[in-house]
Design a protein around this nucleic acid. Structure first.
Lengths: 168, 168
DNA sequence: CCAAAAGTGTTGTTACTACACCCATGA
DNA sequence: TCATGGGTGTAGTAACAACACTTTTGG
C-alpha cells in the first residue's frame, strides 16, 4: 500500500492481482492484494488537497528503488491498466465530467505510451456514439476553442448488455 | 476450492480475482483467491485417473446450487476465461499436443458459446503462423482425414516480445 | 455411388491508415 | 496576419464476412 486512499471518495479502484509466493517477503508468507487507483490530479493537487500533500508522486519511468517484489507488482498493475484502458472506457475516470477530444487523446497516449493520429482517433471515438456533445466550448485558449463532451454512461451500459465491447 | 489439484501436474492455472467482501461469509471476513484450471478430460477421465473418480463434473449451464457467493465467483472465472481465450493462446492448453483445426474451432466455440465460419476461422488461425503443420493425418475417420498441427511455442514467445497480441 | 467433413478460392463490403486541408481564436 | 491547435474529407489499402466450391475418406 503506497498511499492511504481511505480519505478519498469517488476514486476508481481496480483489483489486478494477488501476490502470495512463499518467498516474496523475509518474515514468511505474506499475501498482498494489488489494486490500482485512478486519481485525478486536477481534483487532488497539493494546493487544494491535504491528502495530496501527504503523498509522493513519481513518473512510472523514473521510480525510486522499491522493496521486495513491489517493482513487479507495480509493473503488473500498469500492464493491467494498459489492457483495461483499451477494452473498457476506464480512461474517462481520469477526466473531468466535461472534456475535449484532445484531452481524451492525450490521456490515452500518456497511458499507452504511443501516439494516435488525430483525425482517426476522433472518428474512432465518435463512431461509438458514447460521447454526448455539449453546447459548450473551451474558453481562454489562444486557438480555436474545442467542443466539450461528456461520457454517455447509460448508453454504454445498454450497449454492454447487448454484447458491445469498447475497443480503442 | 472445488477440487484438489495438488495431485495433478502440468495443469494450466490462472488466478482471476480475490474476493474479500466483509459480508461474503457468515463466520466473518474470509478472503478467497479465485483460480481456474484447464484440465484435459481426455487425459484425466474417470477410467484412467484416480483423481477424476474423486471429482464431480457439471456443464456450466446446469450447475447445482452453490454456497455463499460461489456462483458469482464461478461466473467471474468464466468471464475471465472467455476474455483470456480470445487474447492469449490459452485454448491450446486444452488440446492434445497434436490437433486438427476443427478441434481448435470446436474448442473455441464451446468456450465462447458461438459459432465460427470454418474457412474464415482457418485463415485467421493460419495467418498468425503459430501452428506447425505435421506430416500426419487423422486416422479411422469416415471422411477426408484432417491434417494435424502443433502449437509453435517458441515462435509465440518471440512474437510476443515484439509486441504481437494474439487475437481470435 | 453417397455422405460427411476437410480444405480452398472469390467477391463485395467495411474499416482503417495516412494524409491534406480548412477553421476559429488570442496575441 | 500569424501561430496554434481544433476539426473535416478523401483516397488507397487491408481486413473480413459470406458463401460457393473442390477434395478425400469410409461405407
Amino acid at each position: 500500500m503506497l498511499f492511504d486512499l481511505t480519505s478519498l471518495d469517488n476514486v476508481f479502484l481496480e483489483q489486478f492481482q494477488t501476490f502470495g509466493c512463499v518467498d516474496r517477503h523475509p518474515v514468511g508468507r505474506v499475501v498482498t492484494v494489488g489494486y490500482y487507483a485512478l486519481v485525478e490530479t486536477y481534483r487532488h493537487n497539493p494546493v487544494a488537497s491535504a491528502w495530496a500533500r501527504r503523498t509522493n508522486w513519481f513518473p512510472v519511468d523514473d521510480l525510486p528503488k522499491l522493496a521486495f517484489d513491489h517493482q513487479q507488482i507495480l509493473e503488473k498493475g500498469i500492464e493491467t491498466l494498459k489492457r483495461s484502458v483499451r477494452y473498457r472506457p476506464v480512461g474517462f475516470e481520469l477526466l473531468p465530467k466535461k472534456f475535449t477530444l484532445a484531452d481524451l487523446q492525450k490521456l490515452y497516449e500518456a497511458i499507452l505510451g504511443y501516439k494516435f493520429d488525430k483525425p482517426n482517433f476522433r472518428k474512432r471515438i465518435l463512431s461509438m456514439n458514447l460521447l454526448i456533445p455539449l453546447n459548450e466550448l473551451q474558453t481562454n485558449v489562444s486557438h480555436r476553442p474545442a467542443k466539450l463532451f461528456k461520457f454517455d454512461e447509460s448508453r454504454y451500459e445498454s450497449l454492454k448488455k447487448a454484447g458491445f465491447i469498447f475497443d480503442i
